Computed example of a mutant assay.
Amino acid sequence: MPASGGNDREDTATLRDNAPASTLTLGRAVSLVDFQHLATSQSGVWQARAFRPPADARPGEIVRVVVLPAGGSELGNLQQDLQSFLQQRAEPHVQVEVAPWQPLIFSVDASIAVDSAAFEPEIVVDAVREALLDTFSLSRRRLGTPLFRSEIIAAIESVEGVSNCSVTVDAQLLDGNGNPATAARVVQAPDGSVRRISARPEQLLYLDDALSRITIRSHEWSL
């Protein structure tokens, strides 16, 4: 009988993303990406980002690996275990440091246009909030990735019932304990509105259900 079902063979780009980390690195770390793959191959690690910090008085080359543990927890004993694991697979002249990640929690205020003749505004507002919390959740955001206001607008306008929206991103950021935090850079438009927030390699920008201020208002859609 003729074959049916299944998928086409993976292309090269997809294979790079899906191949097991141990296969990509062959158990050794040469590039920064190798350190990231080896770190994420360990259970309990959601993601990792490797970079070279500014040079200091220490001899040799320093590679710092920032780790986000599963669930956003603290590193704890994982820090020493992972550092030993990576150091054993690094070149002799490379010194590996495993560092904790830093939460960078942002807040957003949005006004959405809804055609109340076709959609229930309250339901659309709830759906927008859920879409934002999902799109910008801790598990989906990446270490060191900047936040653009256009991303937030795209996430909101992808919700059924939203005709268009306006968004304000709060320049005040918080750490995991709700204290003020500072990003690498905040880019503002001439009117003072935040257009982009750049994070340092160890920081992760995301929305937190408990700490983020997420304000969503609806108004009647009109041409």
Rank of each mutant, 00 (worst) to 15 (best):
W101E: 02
V96F: 02
A55S: 13
S43G: 15
L133K: 03
A118Q: 14
A117N: 10
R129N: 07
A127D: 12
V45E: 04
R49E: 02
L132F: 00
I105V: 12
H37F: 13
D56C: 09
S41F: 09
V98I: 13
Q42N: 12
F119K: 07
S73H: 11
Q102E: 04
W46I: 14
A39I: 11
Q87S: 14
S73M: 11
L132Y: 00
R58I: 05
R64M: 05
A113K: 09
S41M: 12
A113I: 09
G71K: 07
E97H: 15
P59M: 06
N77K: 07
D81E: 14
S111G: 15
G71W: 09
L68S: 15
P53I: 09
V63I: 13
Q36H: 03
L133G: 07
W46A: 15
L68V: 15
V96W: 02
F119A: 07
L104D: 00
V45Y: 05
V65I: 11
Q36Y: 01
L82D: 06
R129P: 00
S107A: 00
Q102W: 01
A131T: 01
E130F: 01
L86P: 06
A99I: 11
W101S: 02
S84H: 10
E120W: 01
S116P: 10
V67Q: 09
R49D: 01
R129H: 06
T40Y: 02
Q47W: 13
G76I: 00
A50P: 03
E130C: 02
G76W: 00
Q42I: 11
D126R: 10
G44Y: 11
A117K: 05
